[in-house]
Write a protein that binds this DNA or RNA. Structure first.
Length: 180
DNA sequence: GGGACGATGTAT
DNA sequence: TACATCGTCCCT
């Protein structure tokens, strides 16, 4: 089956809209002659420099530079010295964190619930930071619709005060692959 | 140069 | 609840 990348314009709109629209779409990585694909079932919106939970609120640095670049690119960072997290940049310092995948292809017996687990399962590292997600080998593709979207506060950002309480986490309410 | 701190995951 | 483990940021 051929998977066609979603156009970059998919990510060039309101960050919350992108966080919701990404649910049900596929994240695909073709590497070493193997295709791995997962259906996105959990996301978080990070709204930009004014959002105190967003990395770009600390300023425009070497690490956060891609968040200020064009939409549709991957922002990949290392957290806690060992786990990679992958985001879809929406522009102006904003991005959507991908927090969980439902295995679709090439992910047998790999855990994909949780941002660190899914990057490990997919083989995504900082080498992909800045990668345009409408190009192989790492890209977004059309998936299947989500019937009901659940919503909650974002995970692990308690330091962000009132911003930590904003309901900016979205998930497929019917999926057993949502983290937590 | 050095210290504090993570958008986590796993073991205890 | 402890802690592994290291890049980033700022010098508190």
């Amino acid at each position: 089956m051929t998977l066609t990348p979603l156009p970059r314009a998919f990510s060039a709109r309101d960050t919350i809209d992108v966080a919701r629209a990404l649910l049900g779409q596929l994240l695909v990585h073709e590497a070493g002659g193997v295709r791995r694909a997962g259906r996105i079932v959990e996301t978080e919106a990070y709204l930009g420099p004014h959002d105190l939970a967003c990395h770009s609120s600390k300023g425009r640095t070497a690490r956060t530079e891609v968040m200020f670049g064009p939409p549709g690119h991957a922002y990949v960072f290392l957290v806690y010295g060992m786990h990679h997290c992958v985001n879809v940049v929406t522009g102006n310092g904003a991005a959507v964190l991908v927090r969980a995948l439902e295995p679709v292809e090439g992910l047998a017996q790999a855990r994909t619930d949780g941002p660190g687990r899914l990057t490990r399962a997919m083989g995504i590292t900082r080498a992909h930071d800045g990668w345009p997600l409408d190009e192989r080998p790492l890209f977004l593709a059309a998936g299947t619709p989500v019937r009901r979207i659940g919503r909650s506060a974002r995970i692990g950002v308690e330091y962000a005060g009132a911003w930590a309480r904003r309901q900016l986490r979205f998930f497929d309410a019917a999926s057993r692959y949502v983290s937590g």
